[in-house]
Design a protein around this nucleic acid. Structure first.
Length: 658
DNA sequence: TTAGGGTTAG
């Protein structure tokens, strides 16, 4: 891309490569024939006055800039050593450039007017090249600069960072360090941004060392960039430590920290931080609110969602395409697809993300027909679907049992919409076929796929095998799955349950033994429930809640009623090597059950319960909740890692397939 | 003269 990569120089003293620069201008349209350059003539030009004439003649050829040049053209031309042109003129001309062609013309004028020693002007030339994403031209100019200052370095490094060109960004930064140039509060955040985008914690830590040596660790821009980098690299504790040590936290830093918690799966802390931010008198802006809306979506807390919605209205923020889309997602993930649709209908501008978000919303609420109805509307409004739109559509078909419609979409997505099916689309179709019991077709699709298979794909097949009790095929799927993810305990549990359902106790015991022998890092299961505008969080066997005694007492009496109604605890979902009675006891302490018991105690009769779980809901809990919904006559809406389950009168909207 | 934070699936 670049003619020369990184000569190790800091303040450059080498002569500017005029020849190579002016080779470019021989291509410019020029109405002054006698000044038109030929390739072999350019290197001979030494007369600065002629160069200046040439540049002005060239630039005068463009209508947009010719007026600005009138004053200059009327002045007698003198040699560049007795310069009369105000550098501000070039700054203005550069800022008015609409394309690379115009930038090159003004660049030529800068050269012709002998302004290459004026850092104010040369930095602006560099900046304008970068702004127009002409990084090749920008680097060629940067490399040839007679003198560079901290602005030159930060503009160049920032240009690479914003373009996602991490290799050249790091190289230029290394070059800066080697040249003993002090990195400043402009360059450091740019380099940290690249570390963040690449989730490169190692490089980020090295840059952090540079920050410490530079004494800029309390600078707002540098510190915010560090917090952002650590948060996006999922080292939230380090991000928080830096955040807490910041004497003056500005809005961006608050936003980064709030978003960081949500990203790391602790959206509850995001909202705690948002409250603290407001108490500190920091007024949110739209970006900050998008981050908070996103945290509410992750938490699935409807009261918080409504509060945030009201708050946004009080701030008079319009629902632009980004905020509006975030709100659609928030309401859908908080359990109200109707509120999501209301926001969607009110949005004046919608892009492919907004449409896909609404389609996905119907999908995980099991309303596949409504998701499909949106698709032609989207097309007729001129929006082109992308791969995520098709994942959302196929997912919606799968969760609503719309087999033919899903297969039809899958078959035409490439030919009619130029979206090539990838492994995620194939996974949706395997799920779709698996749900319908068409496992041979699902396997056939997997075997004939040209794209690389992943664990999600085999996972979908394994889940279908569990539903339809296909043990041999399950073994095959599990084998592939465990090759890809040998440390995921969920796969072992699923296979073990399949063996148990088929009465193959010896095989089941082998899997359990394997699990005991291997040390797994289990993701802890958490369930949240929102009562009286407060979020209550439970994990398995949790006794930290103030009403813990009442919760366990209630669960005990409830379990007796449920068992009388026909509920039998399914101890296959307990992996500990203990007897059945103890297993049943453990089942009753699952986080979903604790949250539901608390909800039943703490809310009036008839109030719907909304709970959120960070993992897929356990099979026994799913049965348990069906019974609870029947006995207590409550609507219970559960959001798990996969989808929504609406439990009502003893049944679940997922049709027991999830 | 050069800066930072935000939207869809799995």
């Amino acid at each position: 891309m670049f003619p020369r990569i990184f000569s190790n120089k800091g303040t450059v003293q080498k002569p500017l490569a005029l020849g190579s620069l002016f080779l470019q201008y021989s291509c410019l349209p020029c109405t002054v024939p006698m000044l038109k350059l030929k390739k072999d003539q350019t290197l001979l030009i030494a007369n600065h006055e002629r160069l200046r004439l040439l540049s002005i003649a060239a630039i005068a050829n463009t209508q947009e800039t010719s007026l600005k040049l009138e004053t200059q053209k009327q002045k007698p031309l003198e040699s560049h050593s007795s310069l009369h042109v105000d550098p501000k003129y070039f700054i203005s001309a550069l800022l008015n450039c609409k394309n690379i062609f115009q930038i090159k013309q003004v660049h030529a004028q800068v050269v012709a007017n002998g302004l290459l020693n004026n850092l104010f002007v040369t930095n602006k030339v560099l900046y304008i090249y970068v702004q127009h994403k002409a990084l090749g031209e920008a680097y060629a100019f940067f490399d040839g600069m007679r003198e560079r200052d901290s602005v030159s370095w930060s503009v160049m490094i920032g240009g690479f960072a914003k373009a996602g060109d991490f290799i050249n960004c790091f190289r230029t930064f290394r070059q800066l360090i080697r040249c003993s140039v002090q990195p400043d509060n402009y360059t450091l955040p740019f380099v940290l941004r690249v570390c963040r985008d690449r989730m490169d914690l190692l490089m980020g830590s090295l840059v952090h060392d540079v920050v410490l040596k530079s004494g800029l660790c309390l600078d707002q821009f540098v510190c915010a960039a560090l917090v952002d980098m650590y948060a996006k690299c999922r080292v939230i504790s380090d991000a928080r430590r830096l955040f807490d040590n910041m004497p003056n936290k500005d809005l961006v830093t608050w936003t980064v920290m709030i978003g960081g918690y949500a990203e790391c799966g602790n959206a509850k802390e995001s909202l705690v931080l948002f409250e603290w931010m407001r108490e500190e008198g920091v007024v949110p802006d739209k970006i900050n609110m998008v981050t908070v809306v996103n945290a509410c979506a992750k938490l699935g807390a409807m009261h918080k969602a409504r509060f945030v919605h009201d708050y946004i209205c009080r701030l008079n923020f319009s629902f632009d395409v980004i905020l509006g889309t975030a709100m659609i997602d928030m309401y859908a993930k908080c359990g109200s697809v109707d509120c999501a649709r209301e926001i969607f209908d009110r949005m004046l501008e919608k892009n492919v993300i907004s449409w896909s978000a609404m389609i996905a919303a119907y999908g995980y609420h099991g309303q596949g027909r409504k998701a499909l109805d949106l698709f032609p509307m989207m097309l007729s409004s001129g929006i082109t679907p992308n791969r995520i739109t098709f994942v959302s559509l196929l997912y919606a078909c799968s969760h609503a049992g719309l087999i033919d419609e899903g297969l039809q979409l899958f078959n035409v997505m490439w030919d009619e919409y130029a979206v090539r099916p990838d492994v995620k689309h194939c996974t949706c179709v395997v799920d779709l076929l698996g749900r319908a019991g068409r496992l041979d077709e699902a396997l056939n699709l997997i075997e004939n796929m040209t794209v690389e298979k992943d664990e999600g794909l085999w996972g979908a097949l394994l889940a279908a095998c569990r539903i339809h009790k296909k043990v041999e095929l399950a073994e095959r799927a599990a084998k592939s799955l465990l090759e890809l993810q040998p440390q995921n305990p969920g796969h072992y549990v699923l296979l073990s349950n399949i063996y148990a359902n088929a009465g193959r106790w010896e095989d089941m015991a082998k899997i359990r033994k394997l699990m005991t022998e291997r040390s797994f890092k289990k993701i802890p299961g958490w369930t949240w429930i929102e009562v009286d505008n407060k979020i209550h969080q439970f994990n398995v066997g949790d006794k930290s809640h103030p009403l813990s005694k009442e919760i366990y007492g209630f669960l005990k009496s409830m379990s007796e009623k449920l068992e009388l109604a026909g509920y039998v605890p399914d101890t296959n979902f307990v992996l500990h090597d203990v007897d059945e009675e103890v297993k049943a006891g453990i089942l009753y302490t699952h986080s979903e059950k604790l949250a539901i018991a608390f909800g039943l105690i703490a809310t009036p009769e008839g109030t719907p319960l909304r709970i959120t779980k960070n993992l897929r809901v356990c099979g026994d809990c799913h049965t348990f909740i069906k019974f609870v919904s029947a006995i207590t006559k409550r609507l219970i809406i559960v959001r798990d890692a996969n989808r929504f389950h609406h439990f009502n009168k003893g049944t679940c909207s997922c049709g027991d397939y999830w």
